[in-house]
Design a protein around this nucleic acid. Structure first.
Lengths: 199, 199
DNA sequence: CGAGCAGTTGATGAGCTTCAAAGGTAGTGG
DNA sequence: CCACTACCTTTGAAGCTCATCAACTGCTCG
């Protein structure tokens, strides 16, 4: 086991590279993403302290990972993890719990990508970040946006222009305020929950 | 543990209902899906023999499940599963492996929903079904479609009209043949792999 | 035979993307 | 310290993909 520090915008590992390590985020924020051969990108998740990274059943990683901010990781050689799991069966329960939690989140994201409008996607996204913030003992409002517009667009299956326009529209309608580009104030959280749920 | 037989189009359980059982599919085909309050639907997966169903970290199911065809399930009371897991640590390894495999599949689906065109989505879907067929010892071609157009549309984030039109277009272009509504012959599998990968 | 449902096809339109340009912001070097 | 540059974000205009609305076909089942 080893502590690793990663600078913003540095790649942690890339898709299809041999999965030699498993990581645990202890500080910072990370994005994970996949690419198509022509460069189209899908960000499949944002990770925060406490999240696991790089767990795979394959020999290689299923996605790429990059630090959004200064990040600290615990790094475990993959073989070590397996021996560790045999010694500590409780850890395995925990991993299984985290995996099924992530699966539920993945299904919510499929609903977002397959069936929600741009407006609903943005609002769902802001609420998700707000909830993540609260889970980590930070205020849930205003919401910090550690990622740029391109990352948001690639997470929500939109373009940066649509993200920008939709945020401006939400601002004009008075449900959010943009303190600056990286901080959003949720003016009417209850109204936002309704929009995100599609009602 | 109990064997259960389900008729086509019967609901197995519904989202938010208490998660009293975990299931293992032994025969048939199942769809799992989520709904928005206004009726929009996202099918988040199709399950086949060998797949697990209903595993959740919560007290309630995260999605609804319905049989597509006549289906057989092994049903385990949830408490029983937990004692079983303590007795058989190997089972837990297996579950963790399946969960991480499903997570990888979920990320592929996010890429599909967020970044692929209707044409690419249909082709990816047909190849996925073909691969699933092969994994179960069936011929990978022609591909059987146990689900109807509505289910395909709700899985791919499209409408039934777009699904129908896109299949017709692929047929006109000679890359697939529609034997009947429920069986597709992949005429040029290599070309299809290229389309699905976005090249 | 007729009713009802799933699927196909056509016409139109909405929402998002693409292309383009201007406004802001941060970082760099004189 | 400020000007310059490069990048990110915002805003505008036009275009395209897919959704919506509608009609028709064919199948199944009473």
């Amino acid at each position: 086991m080893q502590m690793v520090e990663i600078e913003p915008h540095k790649t942690i590992f890339e898709e299809a590279e041999p999965a030699n390590h498993v990581f645990n985020v202890t500080a910072g924020a990370i994005k994970i993403y996949k690419l198509l051969s022509d460069g189209r990108r899908q960000v499949t998740g944002f990770l925060f302290p406490g999240d696991f990274l790089g767990l795979t059943h394959n020999e290689s990683y299923a996605y790429s990972a990059e630090a959004l901010t200064a990040t600290k990781l615990c790094r475990y050689p993959r073989g070590k993890l397996e021996t560790l799991l045999i010694e500590m069966p409780k850890l395995e329960r925990q991993l299984l719990g985290m995996a099924s939690h992530e699966l539920a989140a993945a299904q919510d994201q499929m609903m977002l990508l397959g069936r929600k409008s741009a407006r609903e996607r943005l609002v769902s996204f802001l609420l998700m970040l707000s909830d993540a913030s609260v889970r980590h003992g930070q205020p849930g409002n205003p919401v910090p946006l550690p990622m740029n517009r391109t990352d948001i667009a690639d997470y929500l299956g939109l373009t940066i222009e649509t993200v920008s326009r939709t945020l401006s529209q939400l601002k004009r309608q008075g449900v959010i305020e943009l303190h600056d580009e990286k901080h959003v104030h949720l003016v009417k959280p209850e109204a936002l929950r309704g929009i995100a749920a599609g009602s």
